[in-house]
Write a protein that binds this DNA or RNA. Structure first.
Lengths: 257, 257
DNA sequence: CAGTGGTCTAGACCACACC
DNA sequence: GTGTGGTCTAGACCACTGA
């Protein structure tokens, strides 16, 4: 409910000027969500409405809300309103023996599907030429998918393969690896590189999130037993939906940390 | 240089109204940095100055710049000005056999040090009681460090241990594990859980970054050979400074992806 | 001191959602 | 339609940096 206004008035009264107003308002709303006074899906007062009630300008109210949108606490829909973000159960994914997207979702007990964003043969970028070890004049197959669980987009996968290994990208069914297996080209080993990035405008739109939300960017290079590179894949996972889990054992570095 | 203004004027002329003005300006500045026209450390025109020259309001110019600050492209210093962010060489860290912070930095060839943020005995939080498997009325040792390479803070580490394993946190030298080893309590196994998060105000301040910048949050639980939990550590790594690398081998999930 | 970024205001117009 | 968020403006004061 919108006792946000009353809460703010009370808080302002009890500590006069403890920092920027937009941060005070932000933490009041944030607290209300964490306490459960505002529940996922609940509507907040409109920006103009709240501004009037807490006696701040709309710009300041908006700034507090934008902060929370960026952190994934709230969602805003133009023409509709501002709502407490529905919270996703987090998905755990192992980093030692990688499990498939479909399996992860099965474990989570949710319907899962993919939407094709792109499928076709292209002239390779310099980066792809290097990563895939392509010969001169070779072409590259690109397949890009949006991974969706229920109604929620969870990840974007953009794979690049040598066209000699995947001459017809349209022929893939639901599983790239199953398709590669038919021609005996299923990878047996992969190197993954993870980093945290702020979502770009483009990826944010695909995932239905605000630009700037933290996400996990993963680059994977997969190899055949022969050592030949099969695929070079760049994926973006929602930061608020994924936990990646790794097990470490005693090793060199273990001693000094 | 500040041909940012001329560039903007030109671009506005060539494509009249291709989206929000602050995004147009943002991508112009972003491009200039990527092209190398603006180099790390270079000063940009002041917000008021640029606003006058591109004929936008200061608020709009500021919004473009703030976007880039959040993405780590620019840095702003109050009272001083706006600058292209110095770019860090990325550090690679393995997720299979974890290497120590000191070793990582040695490989990178940089001076490295730690600053203590906190060291002492406390009453455990409920979360710590569960994670460490503490008996009732037990106390907990907390040690928090800021990891710094050269002049750049790279990570925050906050460890919690049973006070029975670390009765005197002040006695730690530079290495927690070396200290634990003296009493035969060095861990032999650990589980790490990684996720991407936007930096909180507090952590952002410690790392000298803007709140909201993407970072990697890692929770590690370490075990003795006996299976007893030794430490529960929460770390925050700069997203723009770390790549985590994992090697995957054929396994169950491998088939379907 | 002058100049910078950080915050805040009041008001405006637009594109979109929902009725 | 009305109401929502999204963008933009002109102007103001503050806290800080640096000469």
């Amino acid at each position: 409910m919108a006792d946000v206004a009353e809460l703010f008035a009370a808080r302002v009264a009890e500590r006069p000027s403890s920092g920027p107003l937009y941060l005070q308002l932000k933490s009041i709303i944030d607290d209300a969500v964490r306490r459960g006074a505002l529940r996922p899906g609940d509507a907040l007062p409109s920006e103009r409405d709240l501004a009037a009630r807490v006696e701040l300008s709309r710009v300041t109210v908006r700034r507090a809300m934008q902060n929370l949108v960026r952190e994934g606490v709230l969602v805003q829909r133009r023409g509709s309103g501002t709502y407490v973000a529905p919270q996703l159960p987090r998905v755990e994914q192992s980093l030692g023996k990688l499990t498939s997207f479909a399996e992860d979702m099965a474990r989570r007990g949710t319907a899962v599907r993919s939407v094709w964003l792109d499928r076709g043969l292209y002239d390779p970028s310099p980066e792809e030429t290097v990563a895939l070890g392509l010969p001169a004049a070779a072409r590259v197959a690109r397949v890009a998918r949006l991974r969706i669980s229920g109604e929620t987009p969870l990840a974007i996968e953009r794979a690049a393969l040598s066209a000699s290994l995947l001459p017809d990208p349209e022929a893939i069914g639901t599983s790239l690896y199953a398709h590669l297996g038919q021609s005996g080209n299923r990878p047996v080993r992969a190197i993954q590189r993870l980093r945290a990035v702020n979502l770009s405008e483009e990826d944010a739109q695909l995932l239905g999130l605000a630009p700037g939300v933290a996400s996990l960017h993963i680059e994977r290079t997969s190899y055949l037993a022969s050592g030949r590179v099969v695929e070079f894949t760049r994926s973006t996972y929602r930061g608020d939906a994924y936990d990646f889990v790794a097990e470490l054992r005693t090793g060199e570095g273990w001693v000094t940390q």
